[in-house]
Write a protein that binds this DNA or RNA. Structure first.
Length: 573
DNA sequence: GCCGTTTTCGGCCCGACTGTTTTCAGTCG
């Protein structure tokens, strides 16, 4: 998929350069949209090129399709090479500084001959910027602050980190007099796997008062902007919080505006305009008479546009609006639909708890079953079980199960897929288990073909029911290894093998786009926390978030079925 | 540069905050 990443980067750079050249803003937007859509593909764009299906990618027309094909052919795009020569290289760096856009960058380069961010910092500190047109003391300070933010590295944080932080801020705001509703919006509400800024919406009859209270909250380090209805600040180390206040009647419209995504909003507003409406964060209006037609709730706005409610997790302008027009949106799975956890480790391998403890905790959660799935013998570092140990575990599980009514421990394994695609346990052993999960834990550096072969071969084993954490990625730590996903999804369908969505916060693997793609192949999914300690049961919510972003319904997911039905569904021929 | 149940040409979301300005451009989300 390096093609996809490289092309996306080139298109995004082209957009930046065109911006510096003050080109047509819609042309710039076209490049940005194309970049984003290519980055989101689950298939190598080279394969799509070979099938001559580039034009089916949204935002790709004749011109961009040719540029993609040129890159696949030659590894270069001449147009980009030419553009690069037309603007100073540093201009692309300068516009990454918050507060500096194309116009300011141009002035800095032209008048001060700035060659690097470091040099800009030096000049700003020496107050050499304040003589430039449109720049005075304050702007100089802002630029320095922007450079500091860059140096600190405002990285995206995992959803599991952002959520508690947002909840903390919200709890402070709840105590602020005059606030009515408070909601986390943005990518947090869309449940993206990583979050950059935290967006919070508040309704109040006295917005200014709320804003004044916000900027004085104790956990705020620095105020970036402080207006009467909108403010921004840095909290904790370096997390930016954007807050917006509207009157209570505008809650729905503001929620929609602030939840985004930006692309979804643009598409929705375009649609509204075509139908003679206007949408902003205050409501939906008749474009001619300016009469307000609604906006108290999001449902109201979608309804006026002739659409059903689009769940926040789907709002990425990835086909959800077209699907809503046809009234074909999926009824997304919810956390309450989950009847059990399909991936649980005990202290027999690298977990921390006994089978009894885990069963008890699962029952307390209202689960009907769990799958005990310890590692297999080859995975020594994780205390993989020998055959004899596994057979004893199966016996122990049978014994414990006799104590339960309405709850069942399913005997399973997370068996290693060995280098040649064979499994770490013989069929004779696997046949005695209720459920078999297969996974790769070694050989990440192998070729795409080899890794794909290993997985497909494992799927062809008649005892393998689930393949877990398919791509091996660890968020922020390890890239996914290369796989031919099309081939794997096809094999999963043919062999009736489910793919796991790992709810383990660092994995979330399959991710959202892969899940969505896999769903189109008609395969089944399993949700498992890959639990190593009892408290990890709570991570299931993150798995459900991925599934929702992948458009999955209750029926697509194995552990929404009662145990007996689940076991029937995973049977192979 | 893309795109089409009003279009193959003429559109392309909408508004807040800041700083430097005397009425608005630049930036951001």
């Amino acid at each position: 998929m390096t093609n996809n990443i490289e092309i996306a980067k080139i298109f995004s750079d082209i957009a930046d350069i065109l911006e510096i050249k003050s080109e047509n803003q819609f042309r710039i937007r076209a490049y940005r949209r194309a970049a984003q859509n290519i980055e989101g593909l689950t298939e190598d764009v080279a394969d799509i090129t070979n099938r001559e299906e580039l034009l089916r990618i949204p935002g790709i027309g004749k011109d961009l399709a040719e540029k993609i094909a040129e890159f696949i052919d030659t590894g270069k795009i001449r147009f980009f090479e030419k553009l690069k020569r037309e603007v100073p290289k540093v201009s692309l760096e300068l516009i990454t500084i918050p507060g500096i856009g194309p116009k300011t960058a141009k002035i800095l380069i032209k008048q001060l001959k700035i060659k690097s961010i470091r040099e800009l910092e030096k000049r700003a500190k020496a107050h050499k910027l304040a003589t430039l047109p449109g720049i005075r003391r304050k702007t100089e300070e802002n630029i320095l602050r922007g450079i500091q933010i860059i140096n600190k590295g405002r990285e995206r944080m995992p959803l599991g980190v952002a959520l508690p932080l947002a909840e903390e801020i919200i709890s402070h705001l709840t105590k602020t007099p005059g606030t009515k509703q408070i909601a986390a919006c943005g990518s947090l509400r869309r449940q993206k796997e990583t979050i950059r800024d935290i967006d919070i919406l508040v309704t109040s009859r006295n917005p200014k008062k709320v804003m004044d209270a916000f900027v004085k909250l104790p956990l705020i380090r620095e105020v970036l902007a402080h207006g009467s209805t909108k403010s921004s600040a840095i909290v904790k180390e370096s997390t930016q919080v954007d807050i917006r206040v509207v009157k209570p009647r505008s809650f729905g419209a503001a929620l929609m505006y602030f939840t985004g995504s930006k692309e979804h909003n643009i598409h929705i507003r375009e649609l509204a305009a075509k139908k003679g409406f206007k949408i902003n964060e205050y409501g939906i209006f008749n474009a001619k008479t300016h009469k307000r037609l609604g906006g108290n709730t999001e449902e109201q706005i979608y309804k006026i546009l002739g659409l059903g409610f689009v769940p926040p997790e789907l709002r990425e302008d990835a086909g959800e609006i077209e699907t809503a027009k046809k009234d074909k949106l999926p009824k997304l799975i919810g956390l309450n639909d989950i009847r059990g956890d399909l991936h649980v480790h005990t202290k027999a391998s690298d977990g921390s708890n006994s089978i009894d403890e885990l069963a008890e905790a699962a029952m307390k959660k209202g689960y009907e079953y769990i799958v005990i799935s310890d590692h297999s013998k080859t995975l020594r570092v994780a205390g993989g079980l020998q055959e004899r140990e596994l057979l004893n575990q199966i016996k122990a599980i049978k014994k414990i199960n006799k104590r339960f009514r309405g709850f069942r421990i399913l005997a399973g394994t997370e068996v290693d897929i060995i280098n040649d695609g064979s499994l770490d346990f013989d069929d004779k052993i696997l046949a005695q288990l209720d459920i078999v999960i297969a996974a790769i834990h070694t050989g990440f550096k192998q070729s795409k073909e080899k890794l794909t072969m290993r997985i497909v071969k494992a799927m062809q084993n008649k005892y393998v029911n689930i393949v877990s954490h398919l791509t091996g990625r660890l968020i922020g730590a390890r890239e996914p290894y290369p796989l031919n996903l099309e081939e794997i999804f096809r094999a999963a369908k043919e062999t009736n093998t489910a793919l796991e969505i790992s709810a383990y916060p660092q994995r979330l693997d399959l991710n959202d786009t892969n899940s969505k793609k896999a769903r189109e192949s008609g395969i089944m999914f399993s949700l498992g926390t890959d639990l190593h300690a009892i408290e990890h049961f709570e991570n299931m919510r993150y798995g459900v978030s991925v599934a929702r972003r992948g458009w999955l319904e209750k029926k697509d997911i194995l552990n929404t079925y009662p145990a007996a039905q689940l076991l029937r569904k995973i049977k192979k021929n």
